[in-house]
């Protein structure tokens, strides 16, 4: 195999592998997205956050106070 043939092989393989890699990455992204918690499932952590910073629950000056005043 001469140098030109070798280069052609490298280029063709690179193109095909890149396209396959992109499709596989896209599938992986979609699967990861499907595994992430949805908005409804996140409500428990949001609730934890609200409890921590609820100005009614804590009278000390904190970020929670700002939340109440600006939300």
């Amino acid at each position: 195999m001469n140098v030109v043939d070798l280069m052609i092989t490298i280029v063709v393989v690179t193109i095909l592998v890149t396209i396959v890699l992109a499709v596989v990455t896209y599938i992986a992204y979609k699967l990861r997205l499907a595994r992430e918690p949805g908005p409804g499932e996140e409500s428990s952590s949001a609730l934890r956050y609200f409890v921590t910073h609820d100005p009614q629950a804590s009278r000390t000056p904190s970020a929670g106070k700002k939340r109440a005043s600006t939300a």
């Binding site: 280029v11 193109i15 095909l16 396209i19």
Partner: peptide, 25 residues
């Protein structure tokens, strides 16, 4: 762009027009 790449790859693999893809590269 995708179809151009695929076309050149197929031409190189099947019809032996490898030089074409090399010039293009």
């Amino acid at each position: 762009n995708i179809f151009a790449h695929l076309f050149f790859a197929i031409v190189a693999l099947v019809f032996g027009g490898g030089e074409l893809i090399l010039y293009w590269l």
